[in-house]
Write a protein that binds this DNA or RNA. Structure first.
Lengths: 143, 143
DNA sequence: GTAGCTGCAAATTCTTTGCAGTTGT
DNA sequence: ACAACTGCAAAGAATTTGCAGCTAC
């Protein structure tokens, strides 16, 4: 009988995600959680994330070319912006309309995932400390 | 001095991608390439894909929750449609406009990545042989 | 002939699992 | 109490790298 417990590790992981607000990698979650609960292990992070994800409290964010990150759910529908300068992920509100129209006839579109690539205000509009553009981050360069 | 050679393995991998047309995983590429060149190894596939990617002949396609796949470049700008029924990836022409407007002021959008999730004509519009919706494939269910 | 390419196996990295001990409830 | 949860270490899976032999040019 599943009766989910409220352990300090579980709470710590949730708190880390709530405090940071932005998508974090399992590694980052572990590091931050360590300061809340000493000795917490990687396995617990993965297990807890899977558990929280299953409960719908957490969702994964996948940026092409990047390791998966996790964030709390419950926010409005949004997408992500990946800064090529600092490699941080930001949230973007709203989403384009008419996506269903892109698919050919006969295809039913149930959901979508969108990621924007570029530079955040702090990293400046042009290539400075940028890492060389990865082949994954191609796509059209317009917009 | 790099002078790139035209080996049969390299050719086989390129041919496989050209024949299939759709994004393939390294594993699939290996399997198909084996029928062209016996004894080809996984390492060669990975090395060659990286090489071809560096040359701009190939690009990777990353579907959230899925292992990376590869396809030939040179097609028009397009996005992908992932069928939750058969797990195949289709290409979608065109792309939404006004994406740059989604990012907050100060952010410069250089590129974008879009994936549509749903069902292809063959798998029918509703859940039949569908796998349970993965937590990654969430996003809004409208459109 | 020679540098680049290949296959194999070992090495990495990331994630999952087995288990005995610990801890909410 | 007792099952769920945890940490650690071993197990897996995916990708990369070292190296000696092979091969296109």
């Amino acid at each position: 009988m599943q009766h989910r417990r409220n352990t300090k590790q579980r709470q710590a992981i949730y708190d880390v995600l709530a405090e940071k607000g932005t998508p974090l990698s399992p590694r980052e979650i572990l590091d931050h959680a360590q300061s809340h609960v000493g000795g917490i292990g990687m396995a617990t992070v993965y297990r807890t994330l899977k558990m929280l994800t299953g409960e719908g409290l957490v969702q994964s964010v996948e940026i092409p070319g990047e390791a998966p990150r996790f964030e709390l759910t419950g926010k409005d529908h949004h997408h992500h912006f990946y800064c090529r300068g600092c490699e941080r992920v930001f949230e973007v509100e709203g989403c384009p309309t008419g996506l269903a129209a892109l698919a050919p006839a006969g295809f039913s579109v149930e959901a979508h995932e969108l990621v924007l690539f570029g530079r955040c205000p702090e990293c400046g509009p042009a290539g400075k400390s940028a890492k060389p553009a990865d082949s994954v981050h191609r796509c059209c360069s317009r917009e």
